[in-house]
Amino acid sequence: MLSINNFSISFNETKILEDINFDVKQGEIVTLLGSSGCGKTTILRAIAGLQKEHDGNICIGDTCVSSKEVYKQDREVGYIFQDYALFPHLNVEENISFALDKLSKKDRNKRVDQLLEQFDIIAHKHKQIHQLSGGQQQRVAIARAMANKPKILLLDEPFANLDSQLRYKTKMWLKNLIKKYNLSAVLVTHDKKEALSISDKIGIIHNKKLLQFDATQDIYSKPVNFYIANFLSEINILPKALIEKLELNVKENQTAIIEISKSKLTNKNTLLEVEIVDKSFCGEYYEILVKDVKNNETDELSMIKSTLENIDLNEKIYLDLKRENIKIILK
């Protein structure tokens, strides 16, 4: 449904993105994930036709809609902005109607009523935007984006302005909506949990490049390098002492890691005795900093979401890791 080929863009002399390639199938939710300012929104704007100057091709279906040779203004996309971009001087009905200017008044009114009903905001039809809650405003923005029955939905940090409870409910509602209408969707966020929970595929952007683009479970379980592993999950880097004791084959350009959730402490004698440097109570778990007692030069390990259940702090403490949970990846 959507194909991005060799996409690069510069502002003045500054290169923002370089050689970005990915495809989005029909009915698929793809998330572009990365730190703020990495160029995620720039890609969305280019797909929507709001950013004209770029290298490479953007194709929707079989049609190239944007390149140095071709530029098409009309695209079957709906765009949901981070701040919703609703018109404050128009009411709910008028905001949605704004996207339907090519229809007759009769057809426009009929379509607006369908959308109001569909998104459960019919009771707010004549309200001004400032009279709505954040969640209601978002539904108006989504209704407007869906008004012309787009094939592709573009979402720029769509849940950023919602509280955590409403964010979860809205996220699941939107995911089901996209799947129900078999839309293709490209979501931009810097929230890894949001990306993992809603996406079919994830692309991670860093230093102008798309480092990895893969199915959600694959990119999580098989990160191609340390940056991706550390971005998607909280990890520990194994100290040299433990790598040697486990006889792991780690090359110079590689590092051995393990997810913090799979790092355990025990009083049972294992390969690495550790000393607790610091601990902070966080409710269901402790944030614990430990170091190898036999090697003062070893880097400290931060262990997050580790419990101290059944641990006697007056006894010797060991790091308990299962070999199968250790990953060896590129630095």
Results as ranks from 00 to 15, higher is better:
S8L: 03
D19M: 02
D19Y: 04
N21M: 12
N21R: 07
F22L: 12
I29D: 04
S36E: 11
G37I: 11
G37D: 11
C38G: 03
G39H: 08
T41P: 11
L44W: 10
A48F: 06
Q51R: 09
V77R: 07
V77M: 09
I80G: 01
F81N: 03
Q82F: 05
D83L: 00
L86Y: 01
L90R: 13
D101I: 04
K102N: 15
K106Q: 13
K110L: 10
L115V: 14
Q118D: 02
D120C: 12
H124F: 14
K125N: 08
K125D: 07
L132C: 10
G134N: 04
R139W: 11
M146N: 02
K149W: 00
P150M: 06
K151R: 15
L155Y: 07
A160T: 13
K169D: 12
M172V: 15
L174H: 03
N176W: 05
L187M: 14
K209Y: 10
K209T: 03
T216N: 09
Q217R: 04
I219Y: 08
K222A: 10
V224M: 08
A229I: 08
A229P: 03
F231S: 11
L232T: 12
N236F: 05
A241T: 15
L248Y: 05
K262R: 14
K262G: 00
L265F: 02
E287F: 10
I288F: 10
V290S: 01
V290C: 11
K291T: 08
V293F: 01
E297L: 12
K305D: 10
S306T: 15
T307E: 12
L308I: 09
D312F: 11
I317K: 01
L319E: 00
K322L: 06
K322C: 07
R323L: 14
I326A: 07
K327W: 07
